[in-house]
Design a protein around this nucleic acid. Structure first.
Lengths: 137, 137
DNA sequence: AGGATAGTTTAGAACTAGTCTAAACTATTG
DNA sequence: CAATAGTTTAGACTAGTTCTAAACTATCCT
């Protein structure tokens, strides 16, 4: 996402059929301004308020889900009762730092699946998530 | 887990330092009686009530967590806001049937990681989860 | 065996993340 | 610029889970 220049956020929203409202633009800026990020709804909400963007929690959730559906974000589930949203939508995997509750991308192709199982009949693979759970050593 | 004969449930509980109470024995029986299972707290609760084992939801949660800590169960996180417990504690991975909310073991070594990334310095790998998310095709 | 003790269970309150609702607001379209 | 359709919002609500403090029970000790 960081590939795209700042000014095109508006265009990207339009492309995916979302009106470029004040809130969405502001949140998109927070999310995509600098590099890859992994945020929870609460985190983004706090950040928005600190940045003087008064936005309701409901809108945070709406926006995160709409962005996800539109392919601008990817949801990552690693902890019960908390969702993370990843601004890196390319095919990649994660470290999850369990003590801290922090996600980190595993760069490039450092994880490679030698073999994938055939999906049960009548089903198709939608996505493969690899989570490497780490701890302070 | 199904390796162990039924009568040894009591011993297993003792081994891991949990008193073999009526509730724990009954839940262990439900969990480990026939083969590998993936249950949520609510599912197990319903099952227990149907089997005429009146047990409170709090005890279900306590028991699932104690069993997990003791290594009799393994917790699998695939959906926000819902935890699954797997009676198969050996090293293996999962299909997750998204429409139905059902986990299924990927048999044997059908998933092999060709390369694992080095964990960030100061950390050690605790576990690697591979979740193959599937959909009806 | 019987009582003391420490671990366990329980109902229900409390909590947390997330969703819903319906009214107010705003971007777009003509 | 008005009409309209999509968006935002506060606050009520829900689902899953955890907490609490009182009642209960397995175990230990004599």
């Amino acid at each position: 996402m960081s590939i795209r220049p700042y000014s095109s956020l508006l265009d990207r929203l339009k492309e995916v059929g979302l009106r470029p409202t004040r809130q969405r633009l502001a949140l998109a800026r927070l999310l995509f301004a600098d590099g890859d990020r992994h945020v929870t709804a609460e985190q983004l909400h706090d950040e928005a308020l600190k940045a003087e963007i008064p936005v309701s929690l409901a809108t945070i959730y709406n926006t995160l889900h709409q962005f996800t559906k539109a392919g601008l974000l990817r949801e990552v589930v690693v902890e019960p009762g908390r969702s993370y949203f990843d601004t890196n939508t390319s095919d990649h995997h994660h470290f999850f730092h369990e003590e801290v509750g922090q996600l980190e991308d595993i760069p490039g192709e450092q994880v490679r699946l030698a073999e994938l199982p055939a999906p049960p009949s009548g089903t198709a693979i939608r996505r493969v998530d690899v989570i490497v759970r780490i701890r302070p050593s």
